[in-house]
Design a protein around this nucleic acid. Structure first.
Length: 479
RNA sequence: GCCUCCUUAGCUCAGUUGGUUAGAGCGCCGGACUGUUAAUCCGUAGGUCCAAGGUUCAAGUCCUUGAGGGGGCGCCA
């Protein structure tokens, strides 16, 4: 008789016992020739499958090894041992796929994250990465839920772009021309008009400009898609391929923009605390274990869940660049020249050491900095009446630095054209972007949220390469 | 791109001022085990000490170059 398969999660959440069911998953350990810890990905918790060795042949028992894919049918009963509430007494066992223990790289022990990164195709089977990727899903789902509940429309902006004026970084070229013998023009240069799209194209670095077009008709939209930066960035918080959320709201100013961003971040924290407590608990314990070997002053001040609840409960600090600059200029590390970059001139960009001082030492909470000097921000940000600051805002988080960057957009055609000229962006490149200032322009604002950085913050994973299944970064594009 | 640290068994690591045959835990392999929780117990095997060159009577250990990895910085999300 075929019995419908249940997930481990649904069995563990069910109060009933004394019923027959089927589970399928992967063996984590097989203890005492008797107890299988079975994980099926539905939860970090394993289901204990109890095997009576006398009922099954040696041929079957020998294949129950770490990593093997098996199915088990039997009674769910209250566990006779400690450590789990219920267990399954196996009546039938099916070996779907054996796993050669002499070569299987995952042992029932702690592996380094660096080693697991080198076997990214298998690390998904571990508890740590199971938790990370379940949380990654929950965060993505929560983001869609948040925007849907607020009447936003999910907008798909192009991944291949013919515009090279997005201004957010170095781009990857997309081309079907032969790299060794591309067609040439009469003057000997590569003839891009012969390329697939009839022009030079790249992978997008941002969907913002197209999202602005969307907001001018749909009122409130958001993008959630992959973005690509060909920057040679070697840090724990940069990827060459990452996912970004970019809402854009019409009839809104920078205050509305900040409110939206803070609401979104808090909604997501609430959502994962409500729905992924077990995964968070596991990652929290993992961090506590990892920090035991560190000296006291290097350990986290708060545990993972405590940190998430703290950020959820407290309002983000909102200050202008000028206020931040003054705090930093008068700060101890600045006066004692402990900063690598000592601040003295208004207009200087804040370095990560400054951002971390504000967030981790001075305010001890997320900080939103607004009204940056125009010279260090993008051309599309609304120029304030002072003529030297723009209505941009960055949200800074502990450890990560900038997690959100946004602004109220420049809507005045003359000002926008002047700013583009300063940035050497030819107006004809962005004629469509300028058109929305010509036809029914209105105040609007938006921001970009780095998805992986949010996943990093919530999971506590220190390296961004460990919160995306198959990371891409300079020199690395495996799997 | 810059700075810095690291690379020893399948994994995680130890290896003293350069000195005999390079060690441990886990894993693997063989055996025991019907209430285990990274199970436990007994036994065996397992090494191009990242690579090349150099210094030295002698190099895992010192020097040079290269490769790979970690962390920090810059760029940003």
């Amino acid at each position: 008789m075929q019995i419908k398969r249940q997930t481990v999660k649904s069995i563990l959440e069910d109060d009933r016992t004394e019923y027959t069911t089927t589970v399928k998953g992967w063996v984590r350990t097989f203890r005492n020739n008797q107890f299988i810890a079975l994980n099926d990905g539905s939860t970090v918790q394993p289901l204990q499958v109890v095997v009576d060795a006398t009922k099954f042949g040696e041929n079957t028992l020998k294949k129950i090894t770490p990593g093997a894919a098996i199915g088990a049918t039997g009674q769910i009963v209250p566990s006779a041992g400690r450590g789990q509430r219920v267990e399954l007494i196996a009546e039938h066992l099916t070996i779907y796929g054996a796993s050669d223990p002499s070569t299987y790289p995952l042992q029932p022990k702690r592996h380094s994250l660096e080693f697991l990164r080198s076997i990214a195709h298998l690390r998904i089977k571990t508890n740590t990465f199971g938790c990370v990727f379940r949380l990654r899903h929950a965060i993505a789902f929560g983001i869609h839920k948040f925007f849907n509940e607020r009447g936003f429309f999910y907008m798909h902006t192009p991944i291949i772009t013919g515009s090279d004026a997005e201004g957010a970084g170095e781009m990857f070229r997309v081309s079907t021309l032969s790299p060794s013998s591309p067609p040439k023009t009469a003057s000997g240069e590569i003839d891009w008009s012969k390329d697939f799209f009839g022009k030079q194209t790249n992978l997008t670095v941002s969907g913002q400009l197209e999202a602005e077009l969307g907001a001018m008709g749909l009122d409130r939209v958001y993008t959630f898609g992959p973005t690509f930066r060909a920057e040679n960035s070697n840090t724990t918080r940069h990827l060459a391929e990452f996912w970004m959320i970019e809402p854009e709201i019409a009839f809104a100013d920078i205050q509305d923009d900040m409110d939206l961003a803070e609401d979104l971040l808090k909604f997501i924290l609430r959502y994962v605390l409500d729905n992924n407590k077990e995964d968070l608990m596991f990652l929290q314990n993992r961090l506590i274990q990892a920090e035991k070997s560190l000296p006291q002053h290097q350990r986290s001040e708060m545990e993972l869940i405590e940190k998430l609840e703290f950020v959820l409960a407290e309002p983000f600090e909102r200050i202008t660049y000028t206020e931040a600059f003054n705090i930093l200029r008068n700060s101890k590390p600045n006066k004692k020249k402990k900063f690598k970059y000592v601040l003295d001139q208004w207009g200087a960009d804040l370095q990560s050491e400054h951002e971390r001082y504000l967030v981790e030492k001075h305010f001890k909470r997320p900080v939103i900095i607004t009204d940056y000097p125009a010279s260090i921000k993008a051309f599309y940000m609304y120029l304030n009446d002072d003529g030297k600051t723009v209505r941009g805002m960055d949200i800074l988080f502990p450890q990560l630095g900038e997690i959100v960057g946004g602004s109220e957009r420049e809507t005045r055609m003359d000002v926008l054209l002047k700013r583009m000229e300063e940035y050497n962006i030819p107006p004809e490149e962005l004629h469509w972007y300028l058109d929305i200032r010509k036809y029914g322009s209105c105040p609007h604002a938006g921001f970009g949220l780095g998805f992986e950085r949010l996943v990093q913050f919530i999971t506590g994973m220190s390296n961004i390469r460990d919160v995306i299944p198959f990371p891409r970064y300079p020199g690395y594009a495996e799997f």
